[in-house]
């Protein structure tokens, strides 16, 4: 690759990192507005989350509990940006040819682990309990998600997200995975897993503000909390994009010279719809207990996912 090509690639990646951050913050603001409307409130302006992050990053005092605490800030933002850039977004491959879905699964763990390290380093017992809950949640929702992922992988005979997206975009909407009956089941299970990944309401057990004082974030303030808000915003985009890439063809509907504009808009609309769905579920359900969430995922969701996997396996073997 020549210098020019590398420069273009770097510029593209930077642009997508910035877009991802902005889109995430915007969505979070819109989500707050929607929840307010469900509650019959007016709600904050849609740009409220930009203001919040700016305020947190401009706080005068920032309290740290030592260098391990700082790892939370460093790893959460860098890890989630890394994850975002390894996903195909709206048909643009970014770095997704250099890795695959397994890599993305494990990259998602980098910010989570950094965050958990920082939370643990504060020494606050609430943080320890919160991280424990987050990890148990992770074990819970990963099982149905992994099973659906494997169903997709054996159907398309690839683990690369870029290839999965390409194979689903051959005939536009008609070739999306979600149009096939087994993958409808899988998509349902994966969407519930997404709800847990996003830590939205029935599964917001790890941060439960009224039980454990916002859990892992209890000692985070100022720039630390600001960076975590950024992490959450980018994670929202990354996780919904992962779902879109797996089941909705990555939002690719058009091919041609200026198709990427249409694809980008479709991708944006799809992740927005997914986010709205999860926000509406969040607005209408109370919080589970951790054992209930574990049982929900390992019993019902895992069985739904397993049915789809067996179905796909039979299809493939034929």
């Amino acid at each position: 690759m020549d210098v020019m090509g590398i420069a273009i690639k770097v510029a593209l990646l930077t642009a997508y990192a910035v877009i991802g951050t902005c889109v995430g913050l915007l969505f979070m603001g819109i989500g707050r507005k929607i929840i307010a409307r469900v509650h019959n409130r007016v709600g904050p302006p849609f740009y409220q989350n930009f203001i919040d992050v700016a305020k947190l990053l401009s706080k005068k005092t920032n309290i740290s509990h030592g260098w391990i605490f700082d790892l939370a800030l460093l790893f959460s933002i860098s890890g989630i940006l890394l994850t975002l850039l390894f996903l195909p977004i709206g048909g643009v491959q970014l770095l997704s040819m250099e890795g695959d879905a397994f890599l993305v699964l494990y990259l998602l763990a980098i910010p989570a682990l950094g965050f958990a390290l920082g939370a643990g380093a504060s020494g606050n017992p609430n943080a320890g309990v919160g991280v424990m809950r987050a990890l148990v949640m992770m074990l819970s929702y990963e099982l149905p998600f992994i099973i659906t992922l494997i169903a997709l992988m054996i159907y398309y005979d690839t683990t690369s997200l870029a290839t999965i997206v390409r194979m689903q975009s051959i005939n536009g909407v008609k070739s999306w995975a979600i149009t096939m009956p087994p993958f409808m089941l899988a998509a349902f299970a994966a969407d519930m897993a997404l709800q847990g990944m996003l830590m939205e309401q029935p599964f917001d057990i790890p941060v439960a503000p009224h039980e454990i004082a916002s859990g892992p974030m209890v000692e985070f303030g100022g720039k630390y909390l600001g960076s975590l808000m950024l992490y959450k915003a980018i994670a929202l985009v990354a996780e919904t994009t992962l779902f879109v890439d797996l089941f909705l063809g990555g939002g690719v509907v058009a091919h041609g010279n200026f198709a990427f504009v249409i694809n980008f808009i479709v991708w944006l609309a799809l992740i927005f719809l997914l986010f709205i769905l999860s926000i509406l579920i969040a607005a209408s359900f109370p919080r589970f207990r951790i054992e209930q969430a574990f049982g929900f995922y390992w019993k019902y969701e895992a069985i739904i996912a397993a049915i789809s996997l067996i179905w796909v396996y039979i299809l493939v073997i034929k």
Partner: peptide
């Protein structure tokens, strides 16, 4: 919340 005021859990 319409003024951007939100309850928080910790100081």
């Amino acid at each position: 919340e319409r003024f951007g005021i939100a309850p928080m859990a910790t100081p």
